[in-house]
Design a binder for these strands. Structure first.
Length: 150
DNA sequence: CCAGGCTTGGAGG
DNA sequence: CCTCCAAGCCTGG
């Protein structure tokens, strides 16, 4: 079975996903739709329904590199909660700025919830649009998304 | 090798 | 409170 790609809607955006079974290779936000399927849990998540993102794996967390460690620490942030760049940095023994770079290059947003990493004094950034970050956090804080239903 | 990034905390006005 | 600045660490080019 080869890697599949597809997209689903999240607000004004389309979430493009490249994946295979439980492993996600790429996730990115774009304007255009992309024909094809996305993992069930991501579909549920984007629709604001109970989703278990932990059942998915990301290529970002593979290996022993510093960034892989950062991505694993970020995945450990519970749904609906946030952590600062500094907190993540201390947790893995690196600098806040390194965490920022890692988030900026995160190959699989959502699966690695980089939107839950905020600056100590505010929101922090998010490519391509910080509005997405706000919408995701908002949805997690108010919605049922965090209920895995288990 | 070096520029630059989704930071931070401290100094100083 | 606000601006300025350097320390700090990793990655892509």
């Amino acid at each position: 079975m080869a890697i599949v790609t597809g997209s689903c809607r999240f607000g004004l955006w389309q979430v493009h996903v490249a994946w295979q079974d439980d492993l996600v290779y790429r996730v990115r936000f774009a304007r255009e739709e992309l024909a094809g399927p996305v993992p069930e849990e991501i579909l549920r998540y984007c629709a604001g329904r109970p989703a278990d993102l932990a059942s998915l794996e990301s290529v970002a967390t593979e290996g022993e590199s510093t960034s892989a460690g950062i991505y694993r620490a970020v995945r450990a942030i519970p749904c609906g909660q946030t952590a600062t760049y500094g907190e993540i940095a201390r947790r893995v023994g690196t600098a806040p700025r390194a965490v920022g770079s890692a988030m900026a290059r995160n190959p699989t947003p959502i699966v690695v919830p980089c939107h839950r990493v905020v600056a100590k004094t505010g929101m922090g950034g998010f490519t391509p649009d910080v509005a997405i970050k706000e919408a995701l956090l908002d949805m997690e804080r108010r919605g049922r998304v965090c209920d895995t239903g288990k």
